[in-house]
Design a protein around this nucleic acid. Sequence first.
DNA 1: ACGTGTGGATAGCGCGACTTTCCAACAGGG
DNA 2: CCCTGTTGGAAAGTCGCGCTATCCACACGT
Lengths: 216, 216
Amino acid sequence: MRLSELSERSGVSTATIKYYLREGLLAPGRRISATTADYDEAHLRRLRLVRTLLQVGGLSVAAAGEVLRHVDDDSLGRTFRLGAALWALPHPPAPDAEEGDEAQVTARREVDLMLEELGWESARELAPVNPDHTSLVEAVASLIRLGYPWNAEMMTPYARMMHQVAVHDLDFVETYPSESERVEAAVAATILFEPILRAMHRIAQQEETVRRYGIT
Amino acid sequence: MRLSELSERSGVSTATIKYYLREGLLAPGRRISATTADYDEAHLRRLRLVRTLLQVGGLSVAAAGEVLRHVDDDSLGRTFRLGAALWALPHPPAPDAEEGDEAQVTARREVDLMLEELGWESARELAPVNPDHTSLVEAVASLIRLGYPWNAEMMTPYARMMHQVAVHDLDFVETYPSESERVEAAVAATILFEPILRAMHRIAQQEETVRRYGIT
DNA sequence: ACGTGTGGATAGCGCGACTTTCCAACAGGG
DNA sequence: CCCTGTTGGAAAGTCGCGCTATCCACACGT
């Protein structure tokens, strides 16, 4: 199919598709002549994934490019490929607070205690280089800075629940036969499950609030 | 304290504080003279909350203003005040897909089935006006559009887990004595727990991936 | 042969979050 | 009492980002 058809079928303007091509989010079509290229179903599928990453996942164009480059990198083993793709996902920028402040030190200690308690060995090993670990420490530090007490004992149940969620995720990913499909599924699942969990969390909070206090 | 001191203690530039004042994120100080105003600890506390909403929660300045206006609205009962504040939190913009498409219809049906199965009565009643319900339907529709099968049966366990999380949240919020502190705590908890849960989710996924497949 | 569509490049636009600049009116130390 | 520095307030400017528009020479289909 040609550019215009890809545009029609995806609902994305040709100008925007060209922009994505320029930014490397989408592989160029098979060149037919100097002025024509041919796109296939894989392009359409990838384009839909891109739109989802941008619109639902809220990724920047640059971040989506990073992620997709890892997804397409055949040179990595499964774990690294997935890890690399997930680590390229955006993380909230480290706040302007000077690092090493008291709240952060406390947060780091409690997070490490939590990992120990859970027996998450590989998470502990990877901690220094894992941006998600950094994010977690920062978020906990923010809570502490706002004056909310927070420690390993309180965190662990949440982490156990998220582990259950992760088990479900991977069971789901395993239903896909090919390696590349699985990595793509894992990325899509991570990105799309986040808004789903967020929405469920807020709905559950509202439900529970009403149960406890009624509508007042 | 004066503007410059507020700026120093919070690490936010005076220009930015002025900007927040203009946008209504921060109440004006008590006027001492035509050119001086006095700020207290409450302003500092609020300013820290604002920065947290913006940096950690990723809210826009406008959205943070919305949320805080509800937090400060004494005319509402507890449930409505909290609900109003939470509903003012940003929701991913509805994708450009024409509404009422097949994926969305399916998604809505499955979400409603899930709520029924869970016995979340008030969530079902509020569904038509609840932006979180809309977000959930949209996110599920996106999954379906990308070709991932998804139904009530698969969603329910996740929702149950998020309900457990919400129960923990509210137990935590209840530890605060005053009404306004509790509403503020609820907002802070909702905003700050989201990055925490997200980070825990990703760490758990990595841990579980390593457990299943090793480092390959 | 000619209108439409093509890849490719460059420039422009609108928005949001600040940041800068300017101002007149003070405050407070010497 | 004067002089330096700060204050609240307004307006304009900056910057990065995600597109969007314009232009071009050329080729495809009819």
